[in-house]
């Protein structure tokens, strides 16, 4: 068993772009669930909007900043369409509708009838949309090593992507920190506790919920873009499992906390990497790499169950303040 390699893999996960992508998506879900109490089971749908929106816009020759705006617009429109029928309904309806909407989005973009636009089932290969982002890279060509971690400066899974991804995470955390401590955040918190009470005080609850849904969706879309930039866009990678992972991350770190999503993401991915690397290194090929992968998802599922039952406030949350609460 090669412990050095395992350790390197694990530490590499801490600042991997995917970890940042998940953290962003979980920050978005935190706005939905932690701050407002909305049970959004379709966060992957928002990520999908971001990923496809960005990739398709880029393939049509749009510059990076316009592609990002296109992606965010797609997610915002998705949120509004989703919110109109559901935000006045009971919480479990919202859960079912969001998961259904995310699924509709996935089935649509992977449909062979849209192959010309979305690449259908095979998706969009990385080289088709990464170019403009890589060209925007201010670093010199080549690659750079930090200890055992060597990545290209600008290409694919690069230092450039890491810098952008983690800058976005920092900005998102600062914004959420600001919002949580503002009168706006107070209204959301009130809605999370009892929306009728807030309504009786003259606040437009529907409007606030819509704002929260769109805002969290935008963070999700940013996460989606970062998620696909190191590799490729594939509809089936943006499905339900992704949503459930984001939920596990949020509940692990602690909903309604500022740093919960970040801590949850780092923790989940390092632990999973440790398990997968260790299983792969086991002698005699007891489990194949596919099985190691499946096993790690089994663990995520079990973790989610245990967390919700025994520690719904997660690591950072305050038991008195956190409730899994449907609105």
């Amino acid at each position: 068993m090669d412990w050095t390699r395992i350790l390197t893999n694990v530490v590499g996960e801490i600042f991997a772009p995917a970890t940042a992508a998940y953290a962003l998506a979980a920050i978005g879900l935190n706005v939905h669930f932690g701050m407002t109490g909305l049970i959004n089971m379709g966060q992957a749908g928002f990520m999908l909007m971001g990923a496809y929106g960005y990739a398709i816009a880029t393939m049509n020759g749009w510059p990076v900043w316009m592609a990002v705006i296109a992606a965010l617009t797609a997610a915002a429109v998705f949120a509004v369409i989703l919110g109109i029928p559901t935000l006045s309904l009971r919480g479990d309806y919202l859960a079912i509708v969001t998961i259904a909407a995310a699924e509709i989005a996935r089935l649509t973009v992977r449909s062979s009838s849209l192959t010309a636009v979305t690449g259908g089932n095979s998706g969009i290969s990385g080289n088709d949309f990464k170019g403009s982002f890589q060209n925007a890279c201010p670093l010199p060509d080549g690659s750079w090593s930090l200890g055992p971690f060597q990545y290209s400066n600008c290409l694919s899974n690069s230092w450039w992507l890491r810098i952008v991804a983690w800058s976005l995470v920092v900005i998102a955390i600062v914004l959420v920190w600001r919002w949580m401590r503002s009168p706006w955040g107070r209204v959301l918190k009130g809605i999370r506790e009892d929306e009728d009470a807030v309504r009786s005080l003259g606040k437009n609850v529907y409007g606030y919920k819509m704002q929260a849904l769109v805002l969290g969706g935008l963070f999700g879309a940013l996460g989606g873009m970062i998620y696909v930039l190191p590799s490729a866009v594939q509809a089936d990678a943006l499905g339900r499992t992704l949503t459930f992972n984001v939920w596990t991350i949020l509940l692990l770190g602690g909903a309604a906390t500022v740093f919960g999503p970040l801590l949850g993401s780092i923790l989940m991915w390092t632990v999973l990497m440790f398990i997968k690397s260790t299983l792969r290194d086991l002698p005699f090929d007891i489990v194949s790499s596919t099985q190691a992968e499946a096993f790690s998802w089994v663990l995520v599922g079990v973790t989610l169950m245990l967390l919700v039952i025994f520690r719904p406030q997660g690591i950072l949350g305050d038991r008195k303040e956190v409730a899994i609460d449907a609105r």
Binding site: D92, A95, V298, V300, G301, L304, M305
Partner: peptide
């Protein structure tokens, strides 16, 4: 007296665990 939404998220975890157990 665990609430139903909380239980619903437990079923989501169970669903994920079982699904990948089948794959495993």
């Amino acid at each position: 007296r665990v609430g139903t939404t909380q239980q619903m998220i437990v079923t989501i975890g169970l669903s994920m665990a079982l699904q990948y157990l089948f794959q495993f």
